[in-house]
Computed example of a mutant assay.
Amino acid sequence: MIFTLYGDYISHYGNEIWIGSLIRLLKEFGHNEQSVRAAISRMNKQGWVKARRKGNKSFYYLTDRGIRRIEEAANRIFKLQQDDWDGQWRMLMYTIPEEKRNIRDELRKELVWSGFGSLSTSTWISPNKLEDQVKSMIDKYEIEPYIHFFVAKYEGPNTNQQLVSECWDLEEINSRYEEFISEYSQKYIIDRNKIEKGEMSDGDCFVERTKLIHEYRKFLFVDPGLPEQLLPDKWLGDHAASLFSDYYKSLAQPASRFFEEVFQEGNELKKRDVSYDALHHPLIIEQKS
């Protein structure tokens, strides 16, 4: 939830927040001060955020590593159309020794999150251009001696679709999209009508927008973002993305008003990115243009 707040709000307001404001924001979701302080402390130890003291106040800001993760997530969350495929597969193979198995386990999680699928125990593939992500992972875990990375065309004897079926359960992913659409299409209609009638407070919109982002970003851990050429005919990912976008934008302005109301106490609103427009998110606009 804290990652969601950084990605959708704090990163546009100087990338830093007073712990008191963070506690106040998360109180809207039923989290108490102790749980918030424990969570931000874990993120600090894991290298996602750093603390800065000013007088008797503690401020937390995203590290470079945290910023990269937020930017990568945003580009995937707000992408409404799949990229065109160049017909090439990115293949990563590793032979990480047993004494480094903790690194191996972390690498697997990163590979799944980035959109790779497991073809065999230590062979991972993706049709997407993930060269930058691979380089970042190699540098992060210092595993250059144990990695081989290829960009190649599949020459059979089976089809590219067969490769996909061996690496990802698209039927299961589609089923999860169906559940998301079923639940949130109804919520979207109800909340949109409430907003139009003035029956939904800015705080309520803040909570619902944050929950929406938090729920939708879970697809980053299951949907590899395959190009259209490799997807089944009745793929629901695009429908879910459009629903998400419409619902998100209906909540955007009142949610941002609430955030600013809380943020201005203890933080500097002047750090707000002047190019940021919550209603017309730049990543959404770029994909539609």
Results as ranks from 00 to 15, higher is better:
Met1Arg: 13
Met1Thr: 12
Phe3Ala: 00
Tyr6Lys: 07
Tyr9Lys: 03
Ser11His: 10
His12Cys: 08
Tyr13Ser: 03
Gly14Gln: 06
Ile17Asp: 07
Ile19Pro: 09
Ser21Val: 12
Leu25His: 06
Lys27Glu: 05
Glu28Thr: 05
Val36Ser: 11
Ile40His: 09
Val49Gln: 06
Val49Trp: 04
Lys50Phe: 11
Ala51Gly: 03
Arg53Asn: 08
Gly55Val: 12
Asn56Cys: 05
Asn56Pro: 00
Ser58Gly: 00
Leu62Ser: 05
Leu62Lys: 01
Gly66Tyr: 06
Arg69Met: 04
Ile70Met: 10
Glu72Gly: 10
Ala74Leu: 15
Asp84Thr: 03
Trp85Met: 10
Gly87Phe: 15
Met93Gln: 15
Met93Val: 14
Tyr94Phe: 11
Lys100His: 15
Ile103Tyr: 01
Arg104Tyr: 01
Asp105Gln: 03
Arg108Asn: 09
Lys109Val: 11
Glu110Leu: 03
Leu111His: 01
Gly117Ser: 14
Ser122Pro: 03
Thr123Ser: 03
Thr123Asp: 00
Ile125Phe: 00
Ile125Tyr: 00
Pro127Gln: 11
Asn128Gln: 13
Lys129Val: 02
Lys135Met: 08
Asp139Val: 02
Lys140Gly: 00
Ile143Met: 00
Ile147Asp: 06
Phe150Gln: 01
Ala152Val: 09
Lys153Cys: 03
Tyr154Gly: 04
Gly156Thr: 00
Asn158His: 02
Ser165Trp: 13
Glu166Leu: 14
Cys167Phe: 11
Trp168Val: 14
Trp168Leu: 10
Trp168Met: 12
Asp169Ser: 04
Glu179Ala: 13
Ser182Leu: 11
Glu183Val: 01
Ser185Asn: 09
Ser185Gln: 12
Gln186Asn: 13
Ile190Lys: 15
Ile195Gln: 00
Lys197Ala: 01
Asp202Glu: 04
Asp202Leu: 01
Asp204Pro: 15
Ile213Trp: 05
Leu220Ile: 13
Leu226Pro: 00
Pro227Cys: 08
Leu230Phe: 06
Leu236Pro: 09
Gly237Arg: 10
Ser245Ile: 02
Ala252Pro: 06
Ser256Pro: 10
Phe259His: 10
Val262Lys: 08
Phe263Ser: 02
Phe263Gly: 01
Gly266Tyr: 11
Asn267Met: 03
Asp277Val: 14
His281Glu: 08
His281Ser: 09
Pro282Gln: 13
Gln287Pro: 14
